[in-house]
Simulated scan of single mutants.
Amino acid sequence: MNSNQLNFAYKVRHALNENLDNLPASTTDRLASARRIALSRQKKESPLHALAPQRLIAGPAGVMFGERLSWFARMGVAVPLIVLVLGLTGIYRYEQQRRINDTADIDAEVLSDELPLTAYLDHGFNAYLAKRGE
C-alpha cells in the first residue's frame, strides 16, 4: 500500500472508533463478522527462514574443506608440496655451484698466465669477464 491508501485507512479506523458507541448492534455485528471473514482470508505467514551459512564448496573440493581430511588425503597434499620445495632447493644449489665453478675457471685462467698482458687492457675482455662472472 502506498502512503495515501495507508492514511485513508487510518482516517477510516479513527472515524469508526469515535462513533463506535453510537452504532446500532446490527451494524456492529456485521462489522465483527466482516472482520472475522477478512482475517480468515488473510494469507498465512510463512515460517521464518534463517540463513545458516556453511563453509562448503560444491564438488570434490567441498569434501576436502568441509570435513576432516584422512591421512591419505593429507599425504596427497603434503607430498607434492615437499617435492616442490626439495626441487626448488636443488635447482638453487645447482645454479649456485655452477656460478662458483664458472668464477673459479675464470680465476684459474687469469692466475695461470695463459693470457697475454694486452688482454687485461681490452675492454671487451673486461665485459667478457663480467658476463662470465655473473
Rank of each mutant, 00 (worst) to 15 (best):
M1P: 08
N2R: 09
N2V: 00
S3P: 02
L6Q: 15
N7W: 02
F8K: 13
Y10I: 04
K11S: 07
V12H: 07
H14P: 00
A15F: 11
A15R: 15
N17M: 12
N17K: 11
N17A: 11
N17S: 10
E18S: 09
D21K: 10
N22H: 05
A25V: 01
A25S: 12
A25P: 00
A25T: 07
S26D: 06
S26V: 03
T28H: 07
T28F: 08
R30F: 02
A34T: 07
A34Y: 02
R35L: 11
R36T: 01
A38P: 02
L39R: 08
L39V: 05
L39S: 12
R41W: 03
Q42L: 04
K43C: 06
K43N: 15
K44M: 13
E45K: 08
L48T: 05
L48P: 06
L48D: 04
A50G: 13
L51E: 14
L51H: 06
A52F: 03
Q54S: 12
R55N: 09
L56Y: 03
L56D: 15
G59Q: 04
P60C: 11
P60M: 15
A61L: 14
M64A: 15
E67G: 11
E67Q: 03
E67M: 03
L69N: 08
L69F: 00
S70T: 08
S70L: 07
R74T: 04
G76S: 04
G76P: 01
V77R: 15
A78D: 02
A78K: 12
V79W: 02
V79C: 13
P80W: 14
L81V: 03
L81N: 03
I82N: 13
I82A: 10
I82F: 05
V83H: 08
V83N: 04
L84F: 05
L84N: 14
V85E: 03
V85A: 12
V85M: 04
L86T: 03
G90P: 00
G90L: 10
G90S: 12
I91R: 13
I91W: 02
Y92D: 06
Y92N: 12
R93D: 01
R93G: 01
R93P: 00
Y94H: 09
E95T: 01
E95M: 13
Q96T: 10
R98C: 05
R98F: 01
R99S: 04
I100D: 03
N101L: 06
N101I: 08
N101C: 04
D102N: 14
A104S: 10
D105R: 07
D105Y: 13
D105C: 07
I106T: 01
I106Q: 06
I106P: 00
A108D: 14
A108W: 11
A108V: 12
V110H: 11
L111F: 12
S112K: 15
P116M: 12
P116H: 13
P116A: 10
L117V: 06
L117A: 10
A119I: 00
Y120P: 01
L121Y: 05
L121P: 00
L121Q: 15
L121V: 01
D122C: 10
G124T: 05
F125M: 13
A130C: 05
R132E: 10
E134F: 01
E134L: 14
E134I: 11
